[in-house]
Amino acid sequence: MATVTLHNLVKAYGKAEVLHGINLEVADGEFVVFVGPSGCGKSTTLRIIAGLEDVTSGEVQIGGRTVNHLEPKDRDIAMVFQNYAIYPHMSVRKNIGFGLRTSSLSKPEREQRIEEVAAILSMTEYLDRKPAQLSGGQRQRVAIGRAMVRDPAVFLFDEPLSNLDAQLRSQMRLEIKKLHQRVGTTIIFVTHDQVEAMTMADRIVIMKDGHIQQIGTPAEVFHQPANIFVAQFIGAPSMNLMPGRAVAGGLEVGGTMIARETGRTGAMTVGIRPDDLCVTQDKGCFSGRITLLEPLGSETLVYVDIDGQEVVAHADGRNPPALGAVVQLTVDPANLHLFGADGEAIT
């Protein structure tokens, strides 16, 4: 087990700089998820930690040791790849054992280690099969097994679930989380899926265009997003954003005044999570006409046109309002998210 520290990490390909000074401390045994849209630099950061990419400037430390110039094999890490990178011509046993080739264990010890790992992953009965005879989820487990067998200080996962179907993905999500609770090794996990990030992480690192936007626990990044990007990226459906204006004693938004102290005056962007915006029978903050309904069973997502702007609200799943109806929407003023002209949160 080990800590991972990134200090002012910069990566450039020729003149194009893709990481602009990444600073991060990952605690021992922590499960950290890098999340962001394609091309945000999350995979590059992971590959730099693994040693598969060189650092342009800055420092990578694993377990307090600077590893910038160490080969991947000397960094005491293991990595699970998006396409699993398990060898199609080798049995599951050989695949899992491949990482032990260079270890000093004796042959019986190796066999025992492979059996142990297979048992943890419930793959014992598949040890002599070839990858082609396995399902997607089982292949994924082989890939994880190959990483586990070496008992590394840090696990690196590069979008390992993106090739699985939705049901299997949520199942593997749970299994990886359980595995982490069981073995307690430091994990750095890259994904573009905010649900994966929210459900698995101890801390989430949200990245965009080679910059870290926010680092925080799932609750922090959801309830206190640092800026508009994080606010919109985390949470599904996305946060509603409406132009607003702070005046003395309140906030003018969507044609109404809401009693909320902002500490400043002037134009700002007001964010409301769909979960916080409810259809009500009483007099609400906003009123508008329903343009679209998305029934989800337990609740119904309601698209409402307020003063020419479409927002998403939520309504009861059993008695949803009718399409085209004019409805009242209510929100707790304390749950409004306020962002300045620069996109940063106003606290």
């Binding site: 040693g51 598969l52 990595m79 790849f81 060898y87 491949f98 080739r101 070496r150």
Partner: peptide, 19 residues
């Protein structure tokens, strides 16, 4: 990624070639 995985596992160039 097959080669990258092998690099992380630290096997020799000959093993990568033959296996």
């Amino acid at each position: 990624s097959y080669y990258e995985a092998a690099r992380i596992d630290g096997v020799s160039g000959w093993t990568i070639m033959s296996e």
